[in-house]
Design a protein around this nucleic acid. Sequence first.
DNA 1: ATGGTTTTTACTGCGTC
DNA 2: GACGCGGTAAAAACCAT
Length: 328
Amino acid sequence: MTNQRTTRDGSHGTESVPTQRSRESTDEDHGCPECNGDLVTDEDRGETTCGECGLVVEEDGIDHGPEWRAFNAQEQDEKSRVGAPTTNMMHDKGLSTNIGWQDKDAYGNTLSGRQRRKMQRLRKWNERFRTRNSKERNLKQALGEIERMASAFGLPDSVRETASVIYRRALGEDLLPGRSIEGVATSALYAAARQANTPRSLDEVASVSRVDRGEIARTYRYVARELSLEVAPTDPASYVPRFCSDLELSGDVERRARDLLTAAADAGITSGKSPVGLAAASVYAAALLTNERVTQNEVSTVANVSEVTIRNRYHEILDAGGEPGVEA
DNA sequence: ATGGTTTTTACTGCGTC
DNA sequence: GACGCGGTAAAAACCAT
């Protein structure tokens, strides 16, 4: 294992994080060594180049790694060399202006009362603008993510809309710290899709997200609880239309599958079973009853459920749906 | 952490095309 | 013989305690 720990490069590749900018004013005193032109700093690439001749004056002068978590004694020593922890999560990478709290002027003289009050106001507004700005950037990125994933699924705008609303609320309630933007964005979309009765399973969501399934599940639970989102347990029937159209089955099958599901629900054999499995099984069963050929394998593929589950479920479903009263 | 439930994985046997 | 289907046992995942 290497000691070098790079930033989470999930978002747009690594953004450089100039943690030690404030040390001294480097930019002003020297121009380009070649042509003496003005220097340009490209933060994204971490390069300082000459605006005139393009010479790269300085590159990679920056530590990318916020090693703010120590997992052993060694790292504990090393982590001391970094500055603020969450650089990438602050829209300004910790580079924004702060107005000092001492009411002194540049020479160290105390300010007059009038000036002090002025500084007070400036501090306040500076802070306000800064945080507001940061939230907006955050939002922008998150909404981009949501948009991307939603369109990957072909989900309608309305779902994106509610997903954004959920995200905004999460942001407003300060649920973000400690969680990744993408994780929360994904969770928001997941919740929105469920609420709109066009659910996508956790696995599906995870497949288009940059965050792994486990984190999405965790984040989703958390967000849903904190925002007390009322998300009813997924109705298996809401998967049926999609599966049917993916398998190119007729509307008859679709209707049949729904009937089977309600019958199964009445028989009380659905509780505790995974909604996706039930939906898949009912579609398969319905296709069977309607004489439209589908293999278990095909159904299991589009539904992402194992064939075994389909088998087990569809037996139960047929027992319950065929003649009511057979099962105990 | 633990135990119970559900789902998945992997394997086997049977019948059909 | 490959394929679809059915069953089973053990492993894994999930959930509540």
